[in-house]
């Protein structure tokens, strides 16, 4: 354990397991925010991007990915009071085990790649792959739409980290464009979900439509 970034990334790996085992939306969002913050500060630790533009982009990413998006979703959940259980398709214990297997697989797969950053941090690519696949798993294994959004954002964090890993310079413009898309996507999804919620409340009991929450 030599590099500081590896210590932080090992906590990200842990937060993936935590988000798999968490039965509450709040816990999931906190894990997400943590992942967002770490993912956006990783470039500093690897040592590239210490230009003015790079710092500015990274800080903006931190602001949006680590604070704005989680805060927005948190607010949304408070508003529609959807903080009950997540109704998993795959149970929490099963999910934790899947998460462990997933990390092992990510470790195994990442050895096959030869990436420029492997010399500085051993955990970078495994964490990126784990986030990517873990996000996909959350998308599949949870029933509610709000959890799917969270899974999607986890996946996006993973994609960003893969980007950091593979390209050593000048990936900001593309990443930033994607980030803005994600922000817009989250907002649109929130609005849609809110409307569905309102429709459901006024439209009587259509229980087959309980995609947000079942009180």
């Amino acid at each position: 354990m030599t590099h500081l970034v590896d210590i932080i990334l090992s906590f990200v790996l842990l937060s993936i397991i935590f988000s798999f085992g968490s039965s509450r939306l709040q816990g999931l969002i906190k894990a997400l925010a943590f992942q967002g913050v770490v993912v956006s500060i990783v470039p500093f630790f690897i040592g590239h991007d210490i230009t003015e533009g790079g710092v500015l982009f990274s800080l903006t990413t931190l602001l949006i990915r680590g604070i704005a998006i989680p805060f927005y979703i948190y607010r949304f959940i408070e508003k529609v009071a959807a903080h009950r259980e997540l109704e998993p398709i795959i149970g929490y214990n099963g999910s934790i085990f899947t998460g462990l297997l997933l990390i092992v697989a990510a470790m195994a797969v990442s050895r096959k790649f030869s990436v420029p950053s492997a010399s500085t941090s051993l955990l970078l690519l495994p964490t990126a792959i784990s986030l990517l696949v873990g996000g996909m798993f959350l998308l599949m294994a949870r029933r509610k739409a709000i959890t799917m959004i969270l899974g999607y954002i986890t996946m996006e964090n993973g994609i960003y980290l893969v980007g950091t890993t593979f390209s050593v310079r000048a990936h900001h413009i593309v990443e930033f464009g994607i980030l803005l898309d994600v922000l817009a996507g989250v907002m649109i999804m929130a609005v849609i979900l809110q409307n569905i919620k309102l429709k459901m409340q006024s439209g009587g009991e259509d229980t087959s439509l309980n995609i947000i929450s079942k009180e």
Binding site: D6, L14, N93, P126
Partner: peptide
């Protein structure tokens, strides 16, 4: 209790990498 197993397992995998 499974959380403790997950912690130990993650620690092992990460350390084996180093």
């Amino acid at each position: 209790v499974l959380t403790s197993f997950a912690l130990a397992f993650v620690a092992t995998i990460i350390t084996l990498e180093f």
